[in-house]
Design a protein around this nucleic acid. Structure first.
Lengths: 155, 155
DNA sequence: TCCGATTAAATCGGACCCGATTTAATAATT
DNA sequence: AATTATTAAATCGGGTCCGATTTAATCGGA
């Protein structure tokens, strides 16, 4: 045990922190995407939301939030902006007026066909490791979320 | 070639996006740290800034920003809060009044000795892979930043 | 049926992140 | 030495993130 950055007395350096690696890699992705997304008037989060919608359309805000690990407090303003931009549509579900259904519009779908994300695969510089790293980070995320869910009920 | 998420026609799913893996893992880290950091009145970014200062004290805002991949526009308000909390000190450098020197205080140093980050290593659930993933993500970040730096000068 | 839960979005305030600008101090040029 | 250029922080506005609350619609038990 004790695989902590410090482990044996010393070494508690920023460069050993996995959380910082992820934090700074996320900043780096945002900066790498910026020039590409600026050209089409999207932010990073807005783009990710659209990719999520490309898989499964006509989602409620909650359902979309589950895919994105976000809630309505964060999502609502983002979706409103995407609606203003004309890339998505928002409408109350007639069967349950509490819910708002979100879908890509034609222009939104057209934009995604350009595969803006693919432009950056090379910039990651991971070569064949790309899918390996991707899966490791997903596993990390899922472990963190699972081990964080208020575990005060030891079922 | 073509190691893009789409690659062979289809598969452009959110779950294949490395950027989304990193984005959501970063959210997960923030949530995992929250209860731990709430207890000492720090935010995630404030904590990371303190870890950076633990390695090399008496840094200027720019120098600290280089370690954190942030600039004064983001850092200044964070440092002001850390100063108010009593964990760091800020002072103009007498030799060059343009610069502000930042250092950990005694209470700040004491707080870091608790190794709050170490509490989460287990929650990552990566076992022996921990340092491997850590290094991969760092490499990813560095590649992205290098390949993004306005490369319009093909030296 | 009616009224108290429950549920889904939206709203609000505080804290990052960033591009762009401003302020103040130092360096460089003439 | 005085003016200009450069540099370091700070400021500002827009766009996330998030905990907490509010609003509105639906559900459920008496």
């Amino acid at each position: 045990m004790t695989r902590s950055p410090k482990a044996d007395g010393k070494g508690r350096k920023l460069s050993n922190f996995l959380c910082f690696a992820v934090y700074s890699a996320n900043l780096a992705f945002g900066r790498a995407y910026k020039p590409i997304l600026d050209a089409v008037g999207l932010t990073y989060t807005q783009y990710i939301a659209m990719v999520a919608l490309a898989e499964a359309d006509d989602l409620t805000v909650s359902a979309l939030g589950e895919k994105l690990f976000l809630e309505s407090n964060t999502l609502t303003p983002i979706l409103k902006k995407l609606e203003q931009s004309g890339y998505i549509s928002r409408a109350r579900d007639p069967a349950d007026e509490r819910q708002v259904r979100v879908s890509l519009t034609k222009p939104g779908r057209r934009l995604l066909e350009k595969d803006l994300g693919g432009l950056l695969v090379e910039a990651c510089g991971l070569g064949d490791e790309f899918p390996v790293v991707q899966k490791s980070v997903v596993r990390l995320r899922d472990n963190l979320l699972r081990n964080t869910k208020d575990k005060q009920d030891g079922t």
